[in-house]
Write a protein that binds this DNA or RNA. Structure first.
Length: 680
RNA sequence: GGCGAGGUAGCUCAGCCGGUUAGAGCGCAGCACUCAUAAUGCUGAGGCCGCGAGUUCGAGUCUCGCCCUCGCUACCA
């Protein structure tokens, strides 16, 4: 989506951060930094733009966090809203509004939106059985149920996933489920919910997506993948049984709230209302507005399919024009993980590197995961800062300021006749705004920032070739010309840096006594007229020493060690001898093995137990080839109730050792043990 | 297993509506310079463009198959 279409105004949103934790560099690189750069660029172009964000404060995870810490959900979201808001301010992420979904205007907006859809008959009511806590008298969201993981035996698995083995679960699969509210055993009870059927919209959605073939391949591809998937688009429940969130505005909906994924994107709309009042419709319901959603790749489906579907059903809305989703940023080769504390938190970064937010902005933009997952390393961060920001950009500016002071007491000299090389540099200056602007219009932030840096490189090259420190002794007129040209480069940099490095750009402009100019004005060559005075200034960027980098790596290393230590599965509850004797454990021998078609983990085994042969389906094919395990002696749980897996009746279970890396090994017996032997 | 996105110099990444000798930054090796945070500039070495077929006068660039990484999804009792 380029600026060429020249819409009347822009609505730019950045994904609402979830208010149950602080934000880290992955969030910044993937979403907020590119959004901020884009918006600063639009503003510098005098565009009518509203940059919208805020915290997403509903949903079960916040409830849980509150319970864990013994405080109210409101206290949780208040705390993290504050931390996140401050972090964004510190990094210069310059929203027009940073709101929150707990605001009244949002509750009202979301409820009205829901009611409109309801009146239009957009929802299907469905009654299903859900777990209900009789003691707390409420239905339990998946995350409110704990129980034993059917995969790994972990006792504290949640109803949506097991944090020990990482598998995705449904609450019905948990063994001995317990309510996290009261600790009591939940009962199944019927409950009604409002589903948005997406299937009848699939044609419209497909047309909408296909009208945007220019979207990034990762975004377009994932949308089409959803539309083309075998089952098509499924109906999704837009409500939940929960007491934290936005009440479903219907009579028969006591204790039910809007699903966070319904309410969160509407938060963009509410925040716009809060910001501009009745004018909000211009930013959401007018086709001469360009609507851009910056998100991470985890949000693609919601922003490209579900949210547009909601807007379509409601009617009257302009649909998103661009969704420049980034991929993920890894940290030192590993996935960023909040729970494993494998992250660089923004607020902590600033404690360690005060006033160096532009260094991080620069490094993250230079290495942004625009087309694929990227890796952030502290060493790369250091070299970006030291070799590029300090050595190329900062150094060039400093050279100019120092020479200007030394030769002309800060007064811009009048140029003599411009030679070819002077004109070439000046021409570079007039072309740069377009070059950078075009890249930004296409959401190519790395490319844009590289073009900016090229200008500083050109400045250094120009000084090295013209050597004003030599000519000053022999040819004052020539020196004046060279310094005049060099000063123009510094001036242009102070303007073009603004979207990327706003703090340093502002500093530089004060050194140069320049205001922030419109992007359109930057094509004029003479930003600094002869006679204009510039200040002595100071260094724009600081070098980052090895010790500081080492300290950060040690911090991560500590997390790594803590994680490794915690990786043993926790001990289980005591069991009685009776419990144990219920298990019929036998020695068996694998006599046949073959892959189950269309699965990645399953092997169909035939196991000889001596008195009979059993068919057992086992999820081990990622660790063993069928051929290799024929003849393998194994321990079999023989009296496990048979169960059909992928249409095959599995009559027992092979016992496996599951190590801390998740590798499986056979629990086995001495070779001479006879098949069919009992184990006790 | 299905779907999607990637696999290009030691590292991080561009390039891909097919077209002469494949690019950038960092790192590395030389040289030059000293105004500058020992900063800068120049030159150079370094690439079976994941593997194998095919289409074409011509393929990182298109088609098919395979391998690897990441994501979604099915599956593990």
């Amino acid at each position: 989506m380029s600026l060429m279409q020249d819409p009347k105004r822009y609505t730019v949103t950045a994904a609402l951060p979830y208010a149950n934790g602080p934000v880290h560099i992955g969030h910044l690189a993937g979403c907020y930094l590119p959004a901020d750069i884009y918006v600063r660029f639009l503003r510098q172009n005098q565009k009518d733009v509203k940059f919208i964000c805020g915290t997403d404060e509903h949903g079960a995870a916040i409830n849980i966090k509150a319970q864990k810490e013994g405080i109210s959900p409101q206290e949780v979201v208040d705390r993290y809203h504050g931390i996140i808001d401050q972090a964004f301010k510190d990094f210069g992420i310059d929203f027009d509004i940073f709101s929150r979904t707990s605001k009244e205007v949002h509750h009202k907006t979301a409820q009205d939106f829901f009611l409109k859809l309801h009146e239009q008959g957009a929802f299907e009511e469905q009654t299903t059985e859900q777990y209900f806590d009789p003691e707390a008298q409420q239905f339990l969201a998946d995350r409110f149920i704990v129980g034993q993981c059917p995969n790994c035996g972990f006792e504290e698995a949640y109803g949506d996933q097991c944090e020990n083995c990482g598998s995705t679960l449904s609450a019905n699969e948990l063994i001995n489920p317990k309510s996290r509210l009261s600790g009591s055993a939940p009962v199944k009870k019927e409950t009604k919910h409002w589903f948005l059927p997406l299937n009848h919209l699939s044609g419209k959605i497909r047309n909408y997506i296909q009208a945007h073939k220019n979207w990034k391949p990762n975004v377009y591809g994932q949308c089409m993948s959803w539309l083309d998937s075998g089952d098509g688009l499924q109906a999704r429940s837009m409500t939940r049984d929960l007491d934290w969130g936005i009440q479903v505005p219907l009579k028969d909906a006591e204790g039910k709230v809007l699903y966070v994924w319904f309410d969160a994107p509407i938060g963009y709309i509410s925040a716009t209302k809060e910001l501009v009042g009745d004018d909000w419709t211009k930013y959401w319901q007018s086709d001469d507005t360009q609507l851009v959603h910056f998100i991470g790749k985890d949000n693609i489906v919601f922003h490209c399919i579900i949210f547009p579907a909601l807007l379509m059903e409601h009617g009257g809305y302009h649909l998103p024009d661009a969704v420049p989703a980034n991929e993920f940023l890894n940290l030192e080769g590993q996935k960023i993980s909040t729970s494993r504390n494998w992250a660089v938190w923004l607020h902590e970064y600033l404690e360690d590197f005060p006033n160096q937010q532009d260094a991080l902005r620069y490094a993250l933009c230079a290495n942004a995961p625009e087309t694929k997952d990227n890796d952030f390393t502290w060493k790369d961060f250091q070299s970006r800062n030291n070799n590029e920001l300090v050595a190329i950009l900062g150094n060039f500016v400093n050279r100019v300021l120092v020479l200007m002071q030394k030769y002309y007491q800060g007064k811009i000299p009048a140029p003599d006749t411009l030679q070819a090389q002077d004109q070439e540099v000046l021409q570079n200056l007039t072309q740069a705004p377009n070059l950078i602007g075009e890249a930004l219009g296409k959401f190519r932030f790395r490319e844009a920032q590289t073009a900016l840096m090229q200008l500083a490189r050109a400045g250094n090259k120009y000084l090295a070739e013209e050597e004003p420190w030599k000519s000053v002794k022999t040819n004052p007129e020539r020196t004046q010309t060279v310094m005049y040209v060099a000063a123009q480069v510094a001036a242009q940099l102070s303007q073009l840096m603004e979207p990327f490095l706003p703090h340093s750009a502002a500093k530089l402009r004060t050194y140069l006594n320049l205001p922030l100019l419109n992007w359109g004005q930057l094509e004029q060559q003479e930003l600094l007229i002869p006679g204009h005075t510039v200040e002595k200034g100071a260094l724009l960027f600081q070098k980052i020493e090895d010790a500081a980098i080492e300290a950060q790596r040690e911090k991560l290393e500590a997390s790594r060690k803590a994680n490794a230590a915690a990786q043993y599965a926790p001990s289980k509850e005591p069991a009685s001898f009776d419990d144990f004797t219920k298990m019929d454990l036998r020695v068996g021998e694998i006599t046949q093995a073959q892959k189950v078609p269309k699965t990645s983990k399953l092997l169909k085994l035939e196991v000889n137990l001596g008195f009979e042969k059993r068919t057992i389906v086992s999820g081990i094919s990622q660790f063993f080839n069928p051929d290799e395990i024929i003849g393998q002696k194994v321990v079999v749980l023989a009296n496990l109730k048979p169960r059909k897996i992928k249409g095959i009746a599995s009559e027992g279970m092979i016992l496996m050792a599951d190590d801390r890396s998740g590798n499986l090994h056979f629990a086995t017996v001495a070779k001479e043990a006879e098949v069919g032997s009992t184990i006790s």
